[in-house]
Structure formats: C-alpha cells, structure tokens
Design a protein around this nucleic acid. Structure first.
Lengths: 237, 237, 237, 237
DNA sequence: TATGAATGAGGTTTCATTCAT
DNA sequence: TATGAATGAAACCTCATTCAT
C-alpha cells in the first residue's frame, strides 16, 4: 500500500476563482480602489493567508517531510512558484507557520489571568478554553505536530518551550501557589510539578488525534475529575 | 538550511568487519562449527537484528518519511538490497518494527499485576517501571513516534490502541476500582477516567524528548506527587 | 558482454540549445510574439513531440523493458522529470505511443479504397503504399514492436487487432469478393483467408528488420509475383 | 498497472523434490550406481535440462530483458547460483537457448525432403508439420521471440538466418524449381521469391500469439488455399 | 506579482552476479 | 556440485526549487 494518498481534501471549490476572473474583477474595481475591492497589498495578504492555511492543513495531516508543496499550492489555489514569493523554502515556511500558529496560544498564556473567583475556577476556565479551542480543533494537531517534529526542528522545540511551555508552567505555578496560600490546594508539593495540573489536557489532545474513533473521550469531564483530586471533591449540585 | 543532516551516527567502525575478515575467522573455526562460530542462519538473524536496530534508530530520529533506507543500511552495516531480503518495503518495515517494538510493552501490560501490598504500591511500581524502562529510554521514542506517525498509519494506531492503550486503560481501571473498594481511593469518579492516573507518565515521555535539555524533569518524583493527590499525602519520613 | 550499449545515437548535437540560449532568442522576438517565436504552449508541444519521437526510437531499438527513460530524455534533449509532465509512467507512455503511431496506419485503412480501375490495381496500390511507407521505414518497426511486445501488453494487442487488423482483414475481404464477382479472382476460397493476400507484405516487414543486411529483398517485386498467383500472370510488357 | 506479474505458472509441484530428499535417494543408490539411479553426470544433465526448459518458457513469456533469473531458477527447481554453473551469464544463456531450440527446426530443414509423391504433397506435408509442430506450440513462440529480440541480438539473428532461413529458402527454391520442371507450378517467377511459399505459415505463427483469442485461424486450411493458388485448385472430393 | 513548465538530485526498489558454505 | 544470502549498480519515479514568461 502506498502511503501517499490524495491531497487530503482537495481544494474543493475553495479555489478562489480562476486567475483570469480575479484579474478582471480587480481591473475594473481597483484603479481608485473605489468599490473597496481588495487592492494589491490586500490581495497579496489574502494569498499569503491562503497559503498559510493550506500549508498548516497539509503539514498537520502528513508531517513535514511527507508534505508536498504541490499539494499546498493546489489547496491554496495558487501556483507553486507563488509560495516562494512568501517563504524562502519549505523549511522556513514550516517554522514560520508553527510560530504563527502558536501566537494565539501565547496570547492566552500571557493574558493576566482574570481571577475574579476561586483558583479552581481560574484553572477550570483555562482548561475549558484549552480543550475547546485547542484539543478539539486543528490547533490541537499543531501541538501534536510539534511533539512529532520537535526533535528534528530543535529551533521549533526551543521556541515552543520558551514561548509556550515555560510561560505556561510558570503561570500555572503562580496559580498553584495562590491556591495553596488561599487554602484551596492542600498538597504543597504540587507547586514543584505544575505539569501535573495540565497533564490530562495534553492527554486529551493526543487522544483526540489517535483514538477518538475507537473510544471517544469527554475531555472536559475528565478534567473536572482531575481537578477534584487537586481541589477536593465538588458538592454534587 | 537543509533538513537532512548526517546519517546520525554513521556506521562508525560498527561495520561488523569486512566479509573477507569474517570469512577467515569462520574458516578457521567452522569445519565442525566447533568454536560456535555463527553459522549461516545465525548470521542472517544477526543481520536482521542489526537492520531492525538501525531502522528503529533512524525512524525515531527522523520520522518515517524523512528516513532513508540508505542510512539504515549504512548504520546496520549491510548493503541496501539486503534490507529487501527481510522486509517487503519501507512501509511494511516500519509497521513491523513498531509492532515488534511494542511487544515488550504489551508483555508488561499483560503480566498479572503482582499486588502483594497496597494499590498505591502497585500503581507506583508500575509507573516506576514505565518511567525507567520507557520514558527515559529509546522505547519512549517509540511511543512518541506513534503519536507522530499514528494519523498517517492508522493500522499502527489501531494496533497500538488495541494492544497497549485499551489494555492499559482496562488494567488501570481494575486497579482503581480495587483501590476504591479497599478505601485507598476516595474519588469514585476516577474509575471513569483511568487516563488521569497515567497522564503524568506520558507527559514525562514527551518532556524527555523535547524539553529535558532546557529543564530536566524528575518524572518519578512528579509521579509520586500525582499519586499523593489520588491516594492522599504520604507521611513525610 | 553486457547487452546495454550506448544510448543508440546519443543526443548528438540535437539538444535543442541550452535553455539560456533559447531564452535569449525568444526574449528578442517575443514581446508581441511578432516573429512567431514559439510561445510557451508551442514549445511545450515541441518538447512533447521530441519526447515522443525519442521514445519511439528507443522502444523500437530496444523493446519496452530494455529501454531506459534516461536515454529517452537524453535523446529528446529534456530532463528526466520532464517526461513525467507528459506521461504518467513508462508503461502508459509506451501504450500511448503505440496508439498514436498507429493512427496514420488506421487512417490509411479507413480511406475508402479508390477503386478506379481493377481490383488488382487497388490491391497492388495498397501494397505498394504499405511497403514503401511502412515496411521500409521506422513505421515497420512499430509493427514488429507490436509483434514483439504484444503478448506482454494485451491491451495493445487488442487495440491493434481492433483498429488495424480486423479492419484490414475486412477491407481486404471486400476487395477479394469484388474481385471474384468481377471475375478477376478465380479461387473463391480466398475470401475466407484474406490474410493470404497480405502475407508477403508482412514477411517483408520482418525481413527488412532482421535479414535485409544478409540478403536484400525486393518486396514490391515479390508482391507482384504473389499477385500473379492470385490474379493470373501479367503479360510481360 | 505493473507489468511484472507472477512467474507465469509457478513451479507448482514440479519442483523436483527437495534437495534433502534427492540427496538421500542418491546416497543410497549411487555408490555403485547399482539401481540405475542417475549418477552425478546424469543429474547434472537433468538439472541443466530443467534450467533450459524453464528459461525458454520465461524468455518466451516475457522477452529477454524482462525475464528474471530468479523466476527461471524457481521454475527449474534449482538455486539461482546453479544457473551460473551451466551458463556464463544471462545473455549467453539466452543465445545458447535459442540456438538449441532451433536445432530441431534445422534438422527438419536439412532432412532431404522425402518426395515420394508430388511437389505439392511435399510442400503441404512440410507446412503441416511446421504448423502443427511449430506454429501451434511453444516453438512458435521462439520464432516470435527471434523476431522480437533479433535486432538486439544480431548474432542470434545471424545464426537464425544462416541456419534456418537461408537453408529453408534454398530448400524451398529447389522444390519450386522441381515443381516448375514437373509442370506442377506454372509461375516461373515464384522461384525468385520462395518466401511467398511459406508466408502464410509465418502469418499463422504471429496470428496464434497475438490474435487467436479474438479470432481463431485454421492455419492448415489457410495454407491449403494458398497452395491452390500456386498449384491450381484441388478437385473437391 | 504570479505562473507552472522544467530541472535534476535524490529517493525507493529491482535484479544479475558473486561467493562462503 | 549446489546453494541462496548478500551485494551494489542501475532503473524508475518524485518533488523542492528555479526562472522565462
């Protein structure tokens, strides 16, 4: 059996109209950019976005080495050469992609933890966000992709550690210490291993990718049980 | 920069001596095979083992697609064609390798959990074994490899789920239920998510591969803290 | 002695000038494509034609299995990869080539037999055409190629039978029946075996390929003698 | 579609017993060669014959280049290396094979034409023999094989011309001249092109290989009609 | 700026041949 | 003499990258 299959979801209708068609449109509209038709810069940005999106999907589906620029181009609806107007080569495209994709995650980490209520509520809110917006979405695949390609792209692993993991660990540790101070958390050792706090969330990411079709997993509920272990059991409402 | 680097540890001196050299040795020894010089079948088995070992290392280091048979051959000290005497093609070699590599793990899972003492001791023993013999060794990389390539090799993911994950989950659930019965574990919900129990061990596997050089992690101690959350804190001795 | 010899007539100076050179030429000429310098599409067509021509020569000279795509590329003056822009693989290239090469033959067969004069004249005219334009030219080699590779490419043999042989046999039978009706042909059984009528022409094809350097054969004169047997002897002029 | 199929009729049961088995047998029997068990030389000859037979079948089915020594060995029930004890290499094996296979044909040609009855009877007898023993049998494939590979093996073509074709042509010419002398044949020109006499027989060979499954051909009857053209029509009995 | 035909290095796989047993 | 595991050159094919248009 040959590994390589179809370009996982062809550019089904997403091909943003033929070049001729687009050209004609913009020719009419753009001289003064009257009708708010996208001007050159905007169109370039759109194209770039399409490439990024397509590349992300292909890389996630196949991994770095097995992804063909040809498929990315097809999926993005651009010519292969166009990719090289936006990225130096396959490798830097990959690295830049991952960086870009991590930005939202980083932003979340950096946001100064609202903390209106209890620590448990803060952690639970964060975990729910993570599970809903990462574990169950293509973004979760990026985390998996980093786990997969990390050893071959040390710079990516480094970047990921620096920007996401170490911050996340630090932030989580701060929360845990607050929880200990407030008496919500009783085990003081937990602050030494904040990884424990998020472990089930990561398990969920992996599980979704590999095993969800064999046995679905309610990640949010699992996480609640996990929190019960840490914060003590909830009163059943 | 090209991804592809050196064949990660060339066959440096490991080339099991030239054929001529080997021949000479066995000629002296073999007429009655007295000196237990490896006979043909044994030598074939050795060769196969060398290929398996080399392939495993290369696959782990580079992933499936980026691994070259040429490098495997060099590392194993055999000619490229020799690989095809043992494996149909690259893909089935990969699949067979993973299967084989999982056997020890499977055997461990199947061993009927001694359980002389407490449930906590059983779980802790298991986790220590896993961390020592898997997470901190090349075998851990296999787990990571499966996470990486699983989506592209559904049969491998299936096999892994069937032979390792589902058994592991079932075994862990049984232990948890026993713990609940015995009063060691108080949170009855835990039995619904045995994944929680092993989550930190998996985190350790990933951490070792990706981040240990940035920040080492004492997986065993982390796991103890995790168990404290579940079983209640140990008395500090 | 190794079978494989030189690429049977290397790309002897035929390499259609370096890409740079060609570029320069067209740059001067093409802005409005004034000088009818070949545009992109035309150049692609030329390239394809070169590949087809080269492939035909190599296949005819060596047979399917012994032909190397490398040699075809060299002879056509293109890179190896270029072949794959025009053909899926070696096998479909071969099949498509044969089909294409047979078209002229098919057209000849389909032409509605002029028949201004006697049946003998019609047959003789056809045979002369065949011998001159097929037997003594590279096209004859295609017929031989089909005889050689037919059993291994049943679809080609089928196609050849359907498009050439069965039509040819049918047309010849019609002519024979007309000859019988008109009293030109006396042996009525001949209509059952129209193959007899063309047999010497095919013999000529084979003879040219294999034996003409040992003993040349005047195929046209041979065919005349053959016709004498069928239509009765000519008066010696 | 891949060309290469199974080894066209595996050695199904024909594998002449395992080596161990044979060894045991001959060990018992041969010391004095008492039981007429095949001695070493005979066994070698048998082996060689098996190789020749197997090689012939494979070459005929696939052509020279596409035939694998591995398949020949399997079919002959010997190890691949054994082939090299009997033949220098693939090429000389092929050439020698063809030579050997042509010997019976040569012998027939050389046999001094009985000629008890009419010339027509002689020719018809010869043709019947040829059609029955060559055209309709694997031997016919050898003729086709020569047509296929001849241009790539000039020595084979030369040999074939020298030993078979030129003799056949000469013999046929003699017969024709006798026929003319005796008044059986009226067209004196026929002696210049004896190829005409045998053309339908060759057509039959080709037809059997390529088209018989589309449209069977009664070669013998066709040849009779052909002879009628030359010798005059038979009285219908 | 965008295209996509063309390139050719490099990958997987095959197989004639060798040679220790 | 016979074996068949091992070899490695060479075949087919892919695909990242370039560049004339």
């Amino acid at each position: 059996m040959k590994q390589r299959t179809k370009p996982s979801v062809p550019s089904k209708g997403r091909r943003p109209a033929s070049r001729a068609a687009r050209a004609k449109v913009s020719k009419v509209v753009s001289p003064t950019n009257a009708g708010n038709g996208p001007n050159r810069a905007e169109r370039a940005a759109e194209r770039r976005a399409a490439i990024v999106e397509a590349a992300m999907q292909e890389f996630v589906a196949r991994g770095f080495a097995a992804t063909r620029l040809d498929d990315i181009a097809k999926r993005a609806g651009v010519a292969k050469g166009t990719i090289y107007l936006h990225f130096k080569d396959k490798e830097s495209m990959f690295e830049e992609l991952i960086r870009t994709a991590l930005v939202p995650l980083i932003d979340r980490m950096a946001s100064p933890a609202p903390l209106n209520g209890s620590v448990r509520e803060a952690v639970e809110g964060f975990a729910q966000m993570f599970i809903r917006e990462v574990a169950s979405t293509p973004r979760g695949d990026i985390v998996r992709l980093i786990m997969a390609e990390g050893p071959r792209f040390p710079e990516i692993a480094d970047f990921y550690f620096r920007e996401v993991v170490s911050r996340g660990v630090a932030g989580m540790r701060a929360l845990i210490e607050l929880g200990i101070t407030r008496g919500e958390i009783h085990n003081k050792e937990l602050a030494r291993y904040p990884q424990i706090m998020v472990a089930p969330a990561l398990i969920a990411v992996i599980w979704q990718s590999l095993f969800s079709r064999h046995s679905p997993l309610d990640a949010i509920e699992m996480f609640r049980v996990h929190l019960d272990l840490i914060f003590g059991e909830r009163r059943t409402t």
